[in-house]
Simulated scan of single mutants.
Amino acid sequence: MDHRGLDADGCFEREGSLGRVAPLFRPVVAAARERIAQAYGGRLHSAYLYGSLPRGTARPGRSDLDLLLALHRGPAAEDRDIAEVLGAGLDADFPQIDGVGILLHGRDRLLSEPERYDLGWFVACLCTPLLGADLAEHLPRYRPDTVLARETNGDLAELLPGWRARVREASTPPEYRALSRTLARKLVRTGFTLVMPRWGGWTSDLAESAEVFGRYYPRRAAQMREAASVALEPVADPAVPRAYVEDLGPWLAAEYTARHGRRTPRP
């Protein structure tokens, strides 16, 4: 039976686990756990792994290591500097990963009411506990409804002006590749959550996300499939990110706002 990432009550099942981390990546995770504890000490409340590694879908030499660190207080400049050094060290020491992304947030923000259906949902449903007490114990159960759609990806219209500026300023192949990957990932995930309440389920798989979207918007299906491909294999063609900010992005933002509304402003 296709349960689409939900339990018998129609609530999200937490995706990923440490048991799904492939043997090749386990030394990376072990090193991350040890270095995080050493680097942050008593400032750290808890640490989480998310993305392809805990889902068991990581690709050697292509997938990055994604971490979320919850601090007892909001992160300071020193905490961000530590994260940068920590990420660079892990990336340099383990060739099986391609980059390290570290999100830093204070515990109170992750549990706050404004973040209940965005960062809170992210921790409770998409993050795998690595260190410390699990914040998910203080968060509700979630369903794939329009509230979740609005609060997770209802910010696309706000992002577009900044995206356009970044596309105008880019000039080198590495910059275009990075932009194409970042923009494509956001567009595919936004396209999926646009239709998520109608589909009635959850997936983090980008190719599946594009296919699900295409069932509801067949005229845009090919564009979304291509974006999913770029998200996995970024390209240096400047025409790709330009098309995202001039065509697919504006259309998706308008359709999203019409169906789910814009995300609630954050403090």
Results as ranks from 00 to 15, higher is better:
Ala22Arg: 15
Pro54Asn: 06
Ser204Lys: 12
Ala170Ser: 14
Thr152Lys: 09
Gly191Trp: 10
Glu113Gly: 00
Leu69Asp: 05
Glu113Pro: 03
Ala92Trp: 08
Ala258Pro: 00
Arg166Gln: 15
Arg73Glu: 14
Pro218Trp: 11
Leu248Glu: 12
Arg220Asn: 03
Leu6Pro: 02
His260Glu: 00
Ser17Glu: 13
Val235Ser: 11
Gly106Glu: 00
Leu160Ile: 13
Glu78Arg: 15
Asp237Ser: 05
Leu119Ser: 02
Tyr244Ile: 10
Ala83Gln: 05
Leu156Val: 09
Ala157Glu: 15
Pro54Phe: 05
Gly200Pro: 04
Glu233Cys: 03
Thr257Gln: 10
Arg62Met: 07
Ala258Leu: 06
Leu69Ser: 06
Arg73Gly: 07
Glu175Thr: 14
Thr203Tyr: 05
Glu255Asp: 10
Val245Asp: 07
Leu68Arg: 11
Gly120Glu: 13
Trp163Ala: 08
Leu187Ile: 14
Pro265Trp: 02
Ala184Thr: 08
Glu169Val: 06
Arg26Ile: 04
Ala149Trp: 01
Ala58Lys: 00
Arg116Glu: 08
Leu119His: 08
Lys186Pro: 00
Thr257His: 02
Leu252Met: 03
Gly201Met: 08
Thr190Trp: 10
Ala39Arg: 13
Pro129Met: 13
Gly261His: 07
Ala222Gln: 15
Arg225Met: 11
Val230Ala: 08
Pro129Ala: 12
Ser46Glu: 11
Pro174Thr: 12
Leu139Phe: 05
Ala227Trp: 07
Tyr217Val: 13
Glu246Lys: 04
Glu84Arg: 15
Leu71Thr: 05
Glu151Lys: 04
Ala165Ile: 14
Pro218Met: 11
Leu248Ala: 10
Asp79Gln: 04
Leu103Ala: 02
Pro95Tyr: 10
Gly56Lys: 03
Val212Glu: 07
Arg150Gly: 09
His3Lys: 00
Phe12Met: 04
Gly89Thr: 07
Glu158Lys: 11
Asp98Ser: 13
Pro60His: 04
Tyr48Glu: 03
Leu126Arg: 14
His72Asn: 10
Ala254Leu: 01
Glu158Leu: 12
Ala32Met: 05
Thr182Glu: 14
Arg189Pro: 06
Asp118Trp: 12
Phe122Asp: 13
Val147Leu: 12
Pro161Glu: 12
Ala178Asn: 09
Met1Lys: 03
Tyr217Phe: 14
Leu131Glu: 11
Leu86Arg: 06
Ile82Gly: 01
Tyr216Gln: 06
Thr146Glu: 10
Pro60Phe: 03
Val147Met: 05
Arg80Asp: 03
Gly42Pro: 07
Arg225Trp: 12
Arg26Gln: 14
Gly201Trp: 02
Gly5Glu: 01
Arg198Phe: 12
Leu159Thr: 13
Pro95Asn: 11
Arg181Asn: 08
Ala239Asn: 06
Gly132Lys: 13
Thr203Cys: 05
Gly16Trp: 11
Gly74Val: 04
Arg164Gln: 15
Arg141Ala: 03
Asp93Phe: 10
Arg14Tyr: 07
Asp145Arg: 02
Glu13Leu: 15
Trp251Gln: 08
Glu233Phe: 04
Gly41Trp: 06
Asn153Asp: 10
Ser204Val: 02
Leu159Arg: 15
Thr264Val: 00
Leu148His: 03
Thr172Asn: 09
Leu69Thr: 09
